[in-house]
């Protein structure tokens, strides 16, 4: 096991280094930020001053060495636009995105599992068919389009929820959150629902497939023969056995949820890191783009690492195969 953990940690570090280099080369090949930052009236001298201040006059390998050195010290550069450390900028907006992603995760679990259970128990009923049709739409329709339709229906036509922004926030342990105020909650509902729809479709499918499989097992027949109520059979015997794959997949999908928040946050003008990324791409604010990507890469590498380690702990075949390779 120890050999496997060390090998896997080494791989994770390698992936991080490769991605950091790719991100750096890619982002620093983009456009000329000076042209965007300088005022249209700026003369040659002012332009050169800006270039020097941003460190863009040095050769690329020097910029790269500086980037690696600083990154190892937790400094991912200063935003060209806000003139603040890029990492601080992102960390300030991270709570909003995390709140959005977690709310979406909860919605997809607490709506998706009951719907999937129903569709699995009554696959041939009208309700079962409708749920499956809905989940196919949730899968295949573009996320931003679903968001637009939510806005059109609930904000423009019905006027129930606001169409954008984050609303009033209240501090919880020094972090501003919006689910503690009524206004913030109203602002959170639509974006969270939008982000949840795709995962909900996934949860419905997993739950339905699991339910259909489990219902055929002998222990379900035995539980019935014991005279247990339908509620207890489904609530305890079925639910417990289908939760494992659902939880595994959702854990893996948390990272992609934060990535997908880019789209949702743009639709709802929600001030999270996704909106910051899109704005920064538009303004060629390289340090912020790099900081966002590095944060995402680190997050994905950690998620994948944890999942692999858990698998290896549960299933000895995984680490044996790895040790052979």
């Amino acid at each position: 096991m120890l050999v496997y953990v060390i090998r896997r940690l080494g791989q994770a570090a390698l992936v991080l280094a490769v991605m950091a280099t790719l991100v750096f080369i890619a982002v620093y090949a983009v456009g000329d930020p000076v042209a965007i930052l300088a005022s249209p009236q700026a003369d040659q001298q002012e332009m050169e001053a800006i270039t020097r201040r941003l460190g863009l006059d040095r050769p690329l390998y020097e910029q790269y060495a500086l980037f690696v050195w600083n990154a190892l010290h937790g400094d991912l550069g200063r935003s060209f636009v806000y003139n603040e450390p890029a990492l601080t900028l992102i960390l300030n907006r991270l709570p909003a995105t995390l709140e959005l992603a977690l709310t979406a995760l909860l919605i997809s679990i607490f709506v998706g599992i009951p719907l999937g259970l129903y569709a699995g128990l009554k696959p041939q009923s009208l309700g079962g068919h409708s749920i499956m049709a809905g989940s196919i739409l949730g899968f295949s329709l573009p996320n931003f389009w679903q968001g637009l339709m939510l806005v059109l229906l609930f904000s423009v036509m019905l006027g129930w929820f606001p169409a954008g922004g984050r609303g009033t926030t209240r501090d919880l342990f020094g972090v501003p959150v919006s689910f503690l105020t009524l206004d913030g909650l109203a602002h959170l509902i639509l974006p969270a629902l939008n982000l949840a729809l795709y995962k909900m479709a996934l949860v419905i499918r997993l739950t339905r497939a699991g339910t259909r499989e489990v219902m055929l097992q002998d222990y379900i027949r035995f539980a019935r023969a014991k005279g247990l109520s339908q509620t207890r059979v489904i609530g305890v015997h079925v639910l417990k056995n289908i939760l494992i794959p659902v939880v595994t997949v959702l854990g893996l999908e948390l990272g992609s949820m934060i990535a997908f928040a880019v789209v949702t946050e743009t639709v709802f003008a929600y001030p999270g890191i996704g909106k910051l990324l899109i704005d920064s791409i538009g303004r060629l604010d390289r340090p912020v783009i790099v900081a966002y990507l590095m944060l995402t890469v680190v997050m994905f590498v950690i998620i994948n690492l944890v999942v692999d380690l858990i698998y290896a702990a549960i299933d000895p075949r995984v680490r044996l195969e790895e040790a052979k390779a």
Partner: peptide, 17 residues
């Protein structure tokens, strides 16, 4: 495949224009 397609495409297009 461990990174979401949308994110990879977004970065590529930010680079390419």
């Amino acid at each position: 495949l461990s990174f979401p397609a949308i994110l990879v495409a977004l970065v590529l297009l930010a680079v390419f224009g």
